[in-house]
C-alpha cells in the first residue's frame, strides 16, 4: 500500500508570533519555519506502517512556496521515499486555503492512487482544521479525524479519535483519509546520515496550474490584529492573601 502524507511549512511552534503593524497579516519574513507539528506525527505514522510491513511506499507532498522544499526534505530524512512540491505561491505570506489545497491533493491522489492519506488534523498557522475532511469529501472517501490510534485491518482502518467526550473508535473503509492528533505517536528526529541520504531522494516539482486548480482565495482577509491584551496582574504572597483577593473580586 502506498501512503500519501501532505505536509505544510509553518511558523515554528516556539516562535513568538508578531502581527504586522499595517494589519495585513503575521510577519513571516526571516522567521524560523518548520514542518507543521501535526504533519510530523502523520509522517511518523506512515513510517511506522512501513516498518510494520503494512505500507510499501511513502510519498510526501507540500503545496505552497518553493521553500517548502526544506519541509519535504525533512520528511524524506525522517523516512519518506519521495516528495512532490506543488508551487502555488511566491510570497511566504500567502496561505493557500484548505479548499484549494484539498483540490490539488485530490488530483495528486488520482495520479498516485494511495491506499491511505495521513494528514495532520490542523495547521498551527491558520488553525482551520479542514484540509483532511475536505479532501475526503472531494474524493468521496471515508474519513477518520483526530486519530490517537490507528490499526490497518485488511481493507478497513480502525481509528480511535480524540473527541470532546473522550475517545471514539470507528472502522472506516479504505482507501481513507486519516487526520492525526497529538497522542498518536512521538515523531523521530532525522539522523545526520539520513539527512544526507534525503538529499538524493526524488523530489518532483509541479505547479497548481499543472493540476488545473484555481487557488484564488474564497476568504478575503480584511485585517489581522493583535488580540486584546490582558491587564497586568499581581503576585500574592500567600494562600491566605490569594483567598482574600479572590473573595474581594467576587470569584469565590
Amino acid at each position: 500500500m502506498k501512503v500519501l502524507v501532505p505536509v505544510k511549512r509553518v511558523i515554528d511552534y516556539n516562535v513568538k508570533v508578531r502581527v504586522k503593524a499595517d494589519g495585513s497579516g503575521v510577519d513571516l519574513a526571516n522567521v524560523k519555519m518548520s514542518m507543521n507539528p501535526f504533519d510530523e506525527i502523520a509522517v511518523e505514522e506512515a513510517i511506522r506502517l512501513k516498518e510494520a510491513g503494512k505500507a510499501d511506499e511513502i510519498v510526501v507532498v507540500s503545496i505552497g512556496v518553493k521553500q517548502a522544499q526544506e519541509t519535504l526534505r525533512t520528511a524524506l530524512a525522517m523516512g519518506a521515499d519521495r516528495a512532490i512540491l506543488v508551487n502555488a505561491a511566491d510570497d511566504v505570506h500567502t496561505d493557500i486555503e484548505p479548499l484549494a489545497v484539498a483540490k490539488i491533493l485530490a488530483k495528486v491522489v488520482e495520479e498516485e492512487q494511495p491506499g491511505l492519506v495521513l494528514a495532520g488534523k490542523q495547521a498551527i498557522d491558520n488553525d482551520m482544521n479542514a484540509t483532511g475532511q475536505m479532501l475526503s469529501a472531494l474524493l468521496g472517501w471515508s474519513q477518520g479525524t483526530f486519530a490517537s490510534e490507528l490499526d490497518i485491518e485488511g481493507d478497513k482502518a480502525v481509528v480511535t479519535r480524540e473527541v470532546d467526550g473522550g475517545l471514539q473508535t470507528i472502522k472506516v473503509s479504505m482507501p481513507a483519509i486519516v487526520t492525526v492528533d497529538l497522542r498518536l505517536n512521538e515523531p523521530r528526529y532525522a539522523s545526520l546520515p539520513n539527512i544526507m541520504k534525503a538529499k538524493k531522494k526524488p523530489l518532483d516539482e509541479k505547479t497548481a496550474a499543472d493540476y488545473g486548480v484555481d487557488v484564488t482565495p474564497r476568504l478575503e482577509i480584511v485585517s489581522t490584529t493583535e488580540p486584546a491584551a490582558r491587564d497586568a496582574g499581581i503576585i500574592v504572597g500567600s494562600v491566605d492573601e490569594l483567598v482574600e483577593k479572590l473573595k474581594e473580586a467576587g470569584a469565590v
Binding site: I11, E97, D125, D127, A130, E226, P227
Partner: peptide, 28 residues
C-alpha cells in the same frame, strides 16, 4: 470554504477568527 472557530460576527459575510493559537485575530 469553511470558516472554523469564528469568534465574532461582523456582518453576514464577514467574521472574526483567531489564528496562530490566538496570537492574532483575523477578519475574513
Amino acid at each position: 470554504m469553511v470558516i472554523s472557530d469564528a469568534s465574532g460576527v461582523v456582518d453576514a459575510n464577514t467574521f472574526e477568527r483567531p489564528i496562530y493559537a490566538g496570537n492574532a485575530v483575523q477578519t475574513v
